[in-house]
Amino acid sequence: MDKTVNQKAWFLVLPVLLLVAFSAVIPLMTVVNYSVQDTFGNNQFFWAGLAWFEDLLESERMWDALQRQMIFSAIILAIEVPLGIFVALNMPKKGFWASFCLVVMSLPLLIPWNVVGTIWQIFGRVDIGLLGYTLDALGISYNYTQDFFAAWTTLIVMDVWHWTSLVALLAYAGLQSIPDAYYQAAKIDQASRWAVFRFIELPKMMGVLMIAILLRFMDSFMIYTEPFVVTGGGPGNATTFLSIDLVKMALGQFDLGPAAAFSLMYFLVILLISWVFYTVMVNLDKRES
């Protein structure tokens, strides 16, 4: 039976559209306007054409920040996704301990970003922090404000601590939705643990895992608060990721034009990658059904 398509329902999303217009579309349009102009304040603008875009495309500063950002996102995805799956596979399936694990796992997710940053900033201090003090007592030189490697390690471990639960919870939800019949069939075939994971659990988790990867990628690609609180982008520029660099440019130097051009390019990269993830996700869903 063919249903007649009624597109009038779209009018019901009008309020949301209005809200989005004010919170996203109009600010974005303003950013586009700023990106082709120069200002010295006082709301006076001078036409600059594509000069800012040209400057930025040639500036090492932006490419370096982009590179650092890509490396950071790649590392945390490479750690959090396998770790999250591993945790989900080992969580109890039902009963008291299942609920207990769920609550404990969701705790880091409830903590605001700046608090996470502060926790790790203190935790890592050599004079009063448990981690910093212990490492120092063990004779390991660790100082995230001066050492490149220590700063990166701290940020990565912090992000893993904060967000692995999200991946684990999503993977857990995917695992819970697999009917018992699949496992019984695997048992009859005497499938190995690896085969069960490879041919039953992983394909069934694929949908939620893609969502987890998309969310983690987006969040890590836009990360600002935690590195700002812990390292402030240092030592030097070692942990100056895209958003930290952008804020420095827009609010630190008050270069509105270049900052606007920067944010537009940043936005385009995010849009492209999100679209790729989204398309892959939708197509996976279709292939499954």
Partner: peptide, 13 residues
């Protein structure tokens, strides 16, 4: 005025 419109960007949108 705060949106700092220009003709090229207006045409673009």
């Amino acid at each position: 005025a705060w949106m700092a419109w220009t003709w090229p960007t207006a045409a673009f949108f």
